[in-house]
Design a protein around this nucleic acid. Structure first.
Lengths: 356, 356
DNA sequence: TTTATCGTTGTAAACGTTTACAATTCTACC
DNA sequence: GGTAGAATTGTAAACGTTTACAACGATAAA
């Protein structure tokens, strides 16, 4: 919605933020303080003067210089989100939620991609001070995450909220919102087991990724509970990319005890996995069952449509952002219990009972 | 790369941008002007004082307050990119290029999604003045784009560069970088024709989208040149989304003269199209051939792998951003000849000779 | 009428930086 | 040694806003 104050009576954009508060004050015959109050605290000003000032604002096409505002208020209204890859549709959806909430609260968002490199404390620190953002959302995987910068000391300095990934102990002092990754991975694995699978493999991300660590943990727990063996070479790192997953899948297919089902740590890898399996001349789900994680929108149009764990990506994004706003605006309130959002098993057609 | 100046000798982050230039000046026994010069124009200062100041900077952990800098210099080092949907992997790749270039030049990027709504001039205008960005990259479709805001007048005010889409006449005064969409679409269509197809349909985006307008134009031109008829109902709008493309495909499959080949205006729609065709019990490419556009990374793992037109998405992003930097830094140089980057037909397996 | 109170407005300082200009020091040449 | 000129540094203003505080005027209570 365009601010009507941006338009002159003639409907053109006259001077593009070049007119300052002084000009308005002069035209309205008041002091600049009064103009400022009219804009920010209208209730502190007489009806009469307010109207005069508003008229002047309209006529000059004044809009406050946000640079000056940021400077004066010490706030940029800018938040930074750090994530592994903007290319993953899952994160794209999370970003949509973040942006929705940010817009509602008057923030802009800048994105910083780690490209799966783990970030060092120094890098984060440099980003903090140089970007001068009001807060940070971490969606990134950074297990060997320098703790100095994230110590209580720096925490008091800059609002940080963690999204999507479960929290390693040293990060647990930060607020977070995510699903229960362990439980979800167990559910996925148990679903395969319930379909009769016994030889179940997993493709996960780099060792450094906290996110898939938890999913791997859930997988192992489920296998254990059902007293199923995990053979050497059944858990393979897929680098969280299409190519990585293809390579990982080939390894599994060549394994001397070929699994009948594969649990992929995310849907992108699962889709690549489908491709690799079919390229090898095997059928899905007849020969091999595949289950993914995230329910990105391509999962539905995959061939066959992908059975997976759904996360409320957009909701996660919104909640993370609102949580961050609380940190920024109400100060750091110390209440850091993670918000757990629900996941959901979505059954499509990439899983079936094993042959034989 | 972390700025070493951010660290104290003890290796901690001492005061997080709380120490101002005054502190440094005091400690080094110079004026704040000299400190400023040390940081910005080191050559204007004696070796001796420079060392003294650098030592003080190190010891205090000083880093310039970017808010104050932005305010003073009247520059935010922030650019905005407007695009239809961050969810489309193609735009994601373009964004990656943009971000690479932006980082190299010291800019941050904020993204504004139009969600396929066409933007009004008012909305853009509001964004311009409120976001206070140094420049704008338009990747968005906005055919009925208010021309007032983009008139030469406003152009002199704010650097704007257009990426990816061919330019409608009223926007042609802006610099741009993109492939030759018309030629590329012709090439795609001609490839289908060369394979023996005669009944070729097209799924494009909304009528409002300039981007697919050009591709539609290329398709029509190719069909004309080969004297092939385009039957009523063979060109259908797909809303540039998975669902939209599925609906569009169904329409084509139910057409009384069912086409033997479908040209989709982008890969996302093509992938959904593949799915819809297969769901209807038809085989690809045996019964229906499909060709896409963009070569997103899912194209390769689609089933069957998608034949498509490749665009150098990342390169486009980089070039757009560098072009914008020139606009911002060297002033608006008036040279607005579009940069045309090469496209490439990528043959995979979703196209074959028609049966019969 | 005087005084206290409250509501409204104006004055002026402050935020941290950059930079034109003035002042000072240095260099080199006479 | 003196001087012109260059090189370096310091002084102070400026950017546009917000806000503490002072000043003022009006209203109400005495």
């Amino acid at each position: 919605m365009p601010d009507p104050a941006l338009k002159t009576v003639s409907g053109t954009y006259p001077s593009m933020a070049e007119v300052s508060i002084k000009e308005v004050a002069r035209m309205a015959g008041v002091s600049i303080a009064t103009v400022s109050r009219c804009v920010n605290n209208p209730e502190k000003v007489t009806e009469k003067t307010r109207l005069r000032v508003q008229k002047a604002i309209l006529e000059t096409g004044y809009s406050p210089n946000t640079l000056a505002q940021s400077f004066r208020r010490g706030r940029t209204n800018l938040v930074m989100v750090v994530l592994p890859s903007i290319g993953d549709p899952f994160f794209t959806d999370v970003m949509r939620g973040i942006r929705t909430a940010a817009k509602a609260k008057g923030y802009s968002v800048v994105i910083e991609e780690t490209q799966f490199n783990t970030m060092t404390a120094d890098e984060i620190g440099a980003m903090l001070v140089s970007k001068q953002t009001d807060g940070i959302i971490l969606l990134a995987s950074m297990s060997p995450f320098g703790t100095e910068i994230l110590s209580a000391k720096s925490r008091r300095r800059l609002p940080i909220v963690i999204g999507c990934e479960t929290i390693s102990p040293e990060l647990s002092e930060f607020p977070s919102v995510h699903i229960d990754n362990v439980a979800a991975a167990k559910e996925a694995t148990n679903y395969l087991i319930s379909q009769g699978h016994r030889r179940i493999a997993m493709i996960c991300g780099q060792a450094s990724s906290l996110l898939t660590k938890d999913r791997e943990y859930g997988y192992r727990a489920a296998m254990n509970q059902s007293r199923l063996a995990i053979e050497e070479g059944w858990v393979v790192e897929g680098e969280l990319s299409l190519d990585g997953a293809i390579r990982a899948t080939r390894k599994l297919l060549n394994h001397q005890h070929r699994p009948t089902a594969i649990f992929c740590a995310n849907d992108e890898m699962a889709i690549a996995c489908l491709h690799a399996v079919k390229s090898a001349g095997l059928r899905i789900p007849d020969d091999i069952s595949v289950i993914g994680f995230d329910d990105i929108r391509y999962a539905e149009v995959a061939d066959p449509p992908l059975t997976t764990i759904g996360q409320p990506a957009e909701e996660i994004g919104e909640r993370v952002m609102y949580r961050l706003c609380r940190e920024i605006e109400d100060g750091l309130d110390g209440e850091t219990a993670p918000e757990i959002v629900p996941h959901k098993l979505i059954v499509r057609q990439s899983v079936a009972r094993p042959a034989g």
